[in-house]
Design a protein around this nucleic acid. Structure first.
Lengths: 246, 246
DNA sequence: GCCGCTGACTATCATACGTTACTGCGTTGC
DNA sequence: GCAACGCAGTAACGTATGATAGTCAGCGGC
C-alpha cells in the first residue's frame, strides 16, 4: 500500500524545504525514504474536513489546494492556497482535531505520509523537526500578513499583495519565472480568501488590467509591472522567510 | 544576571502549558529550572520591533501585551493579545528575523529566557518541544479565526467573538471566572485588532450595552448573556485546542 | 486649581464595498 | 447540436463602516 524506495514524489517536498532551510545529505536521504501512498483527486474535493482527526499528513505533488472554513448562510473564508511541495496539514501532528477543512482547487495529486513515520523521522533527525516547525511558523506569518490586508488594506492592495506572495512562493519551488505563473483560482475563490465579494474582485481586476499592471487570462497571471505591484500592495517579502532572503 | 533556582516566575508558564497539554514531573521540574531575567515595563513600550533578531524568548508574567505591525499613514494591525503565561515570540526560535513588533498594553513584567536554554530543554525533553510547537500552532489557529472574523463577519460578530476568546484564554490560566474579566484595552486598540475604526467600535459597544449583553467599564468586562454572545459571534472554541475541550 | 493629556463618546457626511440580478461565453455531456 | 453548467463580467442600488471633527470626563503633574 505504501511505497518507500526510490520515492520520486518526495523531490517536490525537498525543493520546498530547501527554499526555507538547508538540508544535510542524511536528512535529504531520510526524506526520500518516507513511505507514501499517492492519490489523485478531481477539483473541488475535500481531503479532510473540519472536525476530522487525521492520522497522516498530506503532501501536495501536483495541483492546487486550499484550507477553508464554512460559516452560516454559505459564507466561506479561505485561509491559504497550497501548491506542490506544501504539507497543508502538518499541524495535525500536534493538533489532533482539525479546526478547518482542506480541499482541492484543481485536479491534484497528493502523497499521504502516516504521522507515525513523520514522528520517527523527527526523532532520528531533530534538526529536521525544527525545519518542519519552521514551516508551520511561516504558515502563521502568512496568516498574519493576510490579517494586515483584511484589516487595513483596500481590496486593490489585498489582491495585489496576494499576487506578489503567490509569485514568490511558486518561484521558490521552481514553478514560476519571469513574473508569470499559473493561477487556477476563480474570482469567487479570490474573494473568499480576501474577504471580498466576487463582484468587487472583478471590479478591481478590471482596474488592474486597465492600468496595464497585469494580464490574467485562462488561469495564467502575467505581471507587467512588478515594482508597481509591490508598491501598491506595500509588499515586503520578509514574512515569507525564504532562505534566499535570509 | 539570570536566576535559576526556585523560579517562582515559571508557575504562570506551567499553568499555561498545562491548559493545552499535560506535563510529566520531570518536564515540570525542568521548566522550573530555566534561567530567567525579569524586567518590568510601562504601558506602550516595545519589547522587540519588526526587523529585530532576538536571542531570547519573552514570557509574560504580569500585564498584557500585543503583537502588531505598522503600515503607512499610521495604520496599524494588531495580531494578538497576550496575557500572563504566554510566550508571544516563541517563533523566534526558528524564524530569526521578526516580521512584526511586540509591545506592552499595560505595565507588564516579563521573564526573558535565552534561546540557548530553550533549545537545550527541548533536546533533553523532546516531548516538551512538541508542547511548545503545539502552542505556536494554536497561535496560528487563532490567527485563522481572526481572519474569519475580518473576512466574513460583521463588526458586531467580531467584537463579540473576541470577548468570548479572551474569556476562555484567561479562564484557562485562572485569571477569569464567572463571565467577568479584566480587559485593559482601549477602543482604538480593539479597532486595530479587528480591522475597525475606533468610532465604529464605540458604536457597536453602545449597541451591546443597550441590549444588556455586556458591561464594560474601567477595564473590566462583564458578560451578562454568554449564550447570546457565543451565538451572535458564531463562536466555537475548538480552535483554541484547550486541554479541557479535547 | 488649572493645564495638558488620554480615552470615551457623538454627530455628520462620504465611500468602498456588498447585494441582487442579469448577460454572455466556453465546455462538457449526450 | 443543444441543454446545462460554471465562470467572467456588468449595472443599479443599498449599506456597513470610515473619516473628520469635535465635546466631555477623568486624572496626573505641578
Amino acid at each position: 500500500m505504501y511505497s518507500a524506495s526510490e520515492n520520486r514524489s518526495m523531490t517536490m517536498l525537498i525543493r520546498k524545504l530547501e527554499s526555507i532551510a538547508t538540508l544535510s545529505d542524511e536528512e535529504h536521504a531520510a526524506i526520500l525514504g518516507l513511505p507514501t501512498r499517492s492519490r489523485t483527486l478531481g477539483p473541488g474535493q475535500d481531503i479532510f474536513r473540519d472536525g476530522d482527526r487525521p492520522s497522516q499528513c498530506c503532501l501536495i505533488l501536483e495541483g492546487w489546494a486550499c484550507r477553508y472554513k464554512l460559516l452560516d448562510e454559505g459564507r466561506r473564508q479561505i485561509f491559504s492556497f497550497h501548491i506542490p511541495g506544501d504539507i497543508p496539514d502538518l499541524q495535525s501532528l500536534h493538533l489532533h482535531t482539525m479546526d478547518h477543512s482542506l480541499g482541492t482547487l484543481t485536479e491534484a495529486t497528493m502523497a499521504f505520509i502516516p504521522h507515525e513515520n513523520v514522528r520517527t523521522l523527527i526523532q532520528r533527525f531533530p534538526r529536521l523537526g525544527g525545519v518542519l516547525w519552521r514551516d508551520t511558523l511561516i504558515d502563521a506569518a502568512i496568516f498574519r500578513e493576510w490579517m494586515v490586508g483584511m484589516g487595513r488594506k483596500s481590496a486593490y492592495g489585498r489582491i495585489a499583495h496576494l499576487f506578489c506572495e503567490m509569485y514568490l512562493k511558486l518561484e521558490a519551488v521552481g514553478l514560476a519565472a519571469e513574473h508569470r505563473y499559473p493561477l487556477p483560482i476563480t474570482q469567487v475563490e479570490l474573494g473568499d480568501a480576501l474577504g471580498l465579494s466576487n463582484v468587487h474582485v472583478n471590479r478591481v481586476l478590471q482596474e488592474m488590467r486597465a492600468k496595464g499592471l497585469i494580464t490574467l487570462r485562462s488561469s495564467t497571471l502575467i505581471v507587467h509591472d512588478w515594482n508597481e505591484l509591490t508598491r501598491s500592495s506595500e509588499f515586503d517579502p520578509t514574512y515569507l522567510h525564504l532562505a534566499k532572503t535570509g
